[in-house]
Write a protein that binds this DNA or RNA. Sequence first.
DNA 1: CCGTTGCTTTTTGAATGCAAAAATCACTAT
DNA 2: ATAGTGATTTTTGCATTCAAAAAGCAACGG
Lengths: 221, 221
Amino acid sequence: MSQFDDTFEDLNSYLYNRLKQEIWNQVYQHGTKLRQEHLAKEYGVSRTPILRVLERLTAENILEYVPRRGFFVKRLSLDEMLNIFALREVLDGAAAKACALHASDEDIEEIRQFFAKFQGKWSSDLEQEYVIVDQQFHSRLTKLSGNKLLQEINDSFSINQFSYQKGLMRPPIETLAEHQSIIHAIVERDPLKAQLLAMEHIQKSMENIRLRFDEHKFPNR
Amino acid sequence: MSQFDDTFEDLNSYLYNRLKQEIWNQVYQHGTKLRQEHLAKEYGVSRTPILRVLERLTAENILEYVPRRGFFVKRLSLDEMLNIFALREVLDGAAAKACALHASDEDIEEIRQFFAKFQGKWSSDLEQEYVIVDQQFHSRLTKLSGNKLLQEINDSFSINQFSYQKGLMRPPIETLAEHQSIIHAIVERDPLKAQLLAMEHIQKSMENIRLRFDEHKFPNR
DNA sequence: CCGTTGCTTTTTGAATGCAAAAATCACTAT
DNA sequence: ATAGTGATTTTTGCATTCAAAAAGCAACGG
């Protein structure tokens, strides 16, 4: 795995990946303060390399830094969540458009196969797998757009972490159809259509968040 | 100025702003290696706070970090430049749309006045001022969109630094008209039109970069 | 019972020290 | 000259230290 390479290559990026992963996995809850000494002990290093990582994750908007107080796992308000989706709308739109324009035929063929295994009946296992493939699909489109900035932005600002949280996803049946139609537009090399469909796709997810929030006031915090 | 507040508030953000500014002002050329000791002496501090800042600017894509080698002022290739504009196209589009939708009447009135002083004849002074106002205009739209993420992204990834570099700007006469029509669409509360015009506006700047690059191979090594 | 005050402990911010890697330079041999 | 080699200097990476700020806590008074 690439995580192992990082281990030997460079302590800094190893710690970075590890902490980011643990935040992702909710080892540290939203709002938690990350004490430097604690992390240092946990990872068997001193505070110095920890601080570098904290600084970096802060710049990526995954942590929040309050001078003289410390670093906290960022807790997202409804507004911030909606902002993320408003952003994803245009980013994923741009990625889909660029794919339709620039991706190679082989890459497009690969995309076409992405959801092949989800044609039959749904099972609980399959639904779980779908969440992963969904995420891979979006990240693949971003990659194939050829715009590295798009990738970097998606990795920052908690965008990916947040978008695929448990409890926020729409039912696969809904989103599968949307994914298929985006793929279709890309296969047809119709940039505008791909863009608009990708944007609608995210808009609907955004609407979903809004609804859930209104209902349960969110089981978070 | 807010820069002064930062000075007294927090060494970290003071150093951050200062170094960022100096990179902006080309005190350190693209590609230059930033030696920690040198910066520490320059700013009269130790390497520790410097390192934090370097780490942060790296996450913002303004510096490049090579393990065991150091931090370098990032040099942008043509592709990276075009990527920035491809991104700005959708970001500024989203901002303009959000303004047309959500900005208050007072804020819109303020925007309407932005380019009032550029109605008459052009002078060299006025052209210089226009560059500033241009930048303020775009950043104002982003702010009024109400989406903080949009602002943060524009501040990161060298997007703003790069977009308003000397030598990349189009003639004011061209862009002024485009700015006016974007403003008009916002005043009319026409989100779609505002979005499309903003996107076209950036597209044209992108085309401009491409042309310049073809011509002179760019006077940037 | 709650809030305030002052003391103790914890945690952060920044400087310093030291080992290891990288860069530089001088020297040699081709 | 040029390429290659080894010694010296510089620079980075990480640990440690210490002062200053913040958090925690206990005694006190309302």
